[in-house]
């Protein structure tokens, strides 16, 4: 599906006045761009009815949340400062690379993405902004786009570009956000900088046969198992799925950050 289709769709909806004011251009929340609506072809298909997952239009941060932004948040929210957060909500690695609870310091440049944050902390940050974390489907939908295509995952050059990043170790000091190319929606850094939390991380792995509690983990993504799923050759998507499947909500790692999302004010067109 091309971007043209979406534009046409929005135009038609607007002309018909289908959703009243909602269909009209809504000013984007600060730092956000509109993504979708569209359809995600999930890399892992948990049931036959889920070959295609509809994704309603939503607002998404153009770039990941930075150290400076997270610092402003913890200044306002003392309970989320390093040392004050109970272990239940963030493990020992929480903001460990910061020089102090209120001082990011030399290893965490103000305009670099914040990492070392748990899912609970990321969610609290977004909520404080009146936003939320993007869902896994939303994030993956946005991340399927290249500079020119809404879904570029079948494009060899796009795949190779992603794998080149995934095969590079994370630098000790992360570069600033916004240095990578914007995708067709205007979103940057979905690839090439850090991993990102999503609201329902790992949940798509829970399928009929795992609901009784057999580990819905990553074993099924090892080796040949991965190749039996929907999108052959999309290793990068499998990696993200497997990575998220290994996470727990209190985990923190030195290359895992986040960005926020929001519903359109008038609801999904």
């Amino acid at each position: 599906m091309s971007r043209g289709h979406f534009k046409t769709g929005a135009l038609v909806a607007g002309l018909l006045g289908l959703t009243g004011t909602a269909a009209r251009a809504e000013p984007p929340p600060r730092g956000m761009v509109k993504v979708g609506p569209g359809t995600l072809r999930p890399v892992y298909v948990p049931s036959p009815e889920e070959q295609r997952v509809p994704v309603a239009a939503f607002w998404m941060d153009r770039v990941p949340v930075t150290n400076a932004e997270f610092l402003a948040f913890v200044r306002q929210a003392p309970t989320w400062r390093r040392g004050a957060v109970p272990r239940l909500f963030a493990d020992a690695g929480y903001l460990r690379h910061w020089a102090g609870p209120l001082r990011p310091g030399p290893d965490a440049a103000p305009d670099a993405p914040v990492v070392g944050v748990s899912w609970f902390a990321a969610r609290a940050y977004c909520e404080a902004r009146g936003a939320r974390l993007p869902t896994e489907a939303e994030w993956e939908f946005a991340a399927s786009a290249s500079r020119t295509e809404v879904d570029a995952r079948d494009t060899e050059a796009f795949r190779e570009q992603l794998l080149r990043w995934y095969s590079r170790p994370t630098p000790r000091v992360l570069p600033p956000v916004g240095r990578t190319e914007a995708n067709v929606w205007g979103v940057k850094d979905l690839h090439g900088l850090i991993w990102e939390w999503v609201l329902d991380f790992g949940n798509t792995l829970v399928s009929e046969d795992s609901r009784e509690g057999s580990p819905a983990g990553t074993s099924r993504f090892c080796g040949a198992g991965a190749l039996s799923s929907g999108e052959k050759g999309d290793y990068a998507s499998f990696m993200r799925l497997a990575f998220r499947g290994s996470l727990q909500a209190a985990y923190t790692t030195g290359n895992l950050g986040f960005r926020c999302a929001r519903d359109l004010a008038g609801g999904a067109p």
């Binding site: 390093r82 040392g83 004050a84 493990d91 020992a92 690695g93 460990r96 609870p101 995934y166 095969s167 590079r168 170790p169 994370t170 991993w195 990696m239 497997a242 990575f243 290994s246 996470l247 727990q248 985990y251 923190t252 790692t253 030195g254 290359n255």
Partner: peptide, 17 residues
């Protein structure tokens, strides 16, 4: 390499404030 990247930080006992 990916697995190395994806491994969450081991929970070391930190100097708690």
């Amino acid at each position: 390499v990916l697995l190395a990247l994806a491994t969450p930080s081991a929970a070391e006992p930190p100097p708690r404030a």
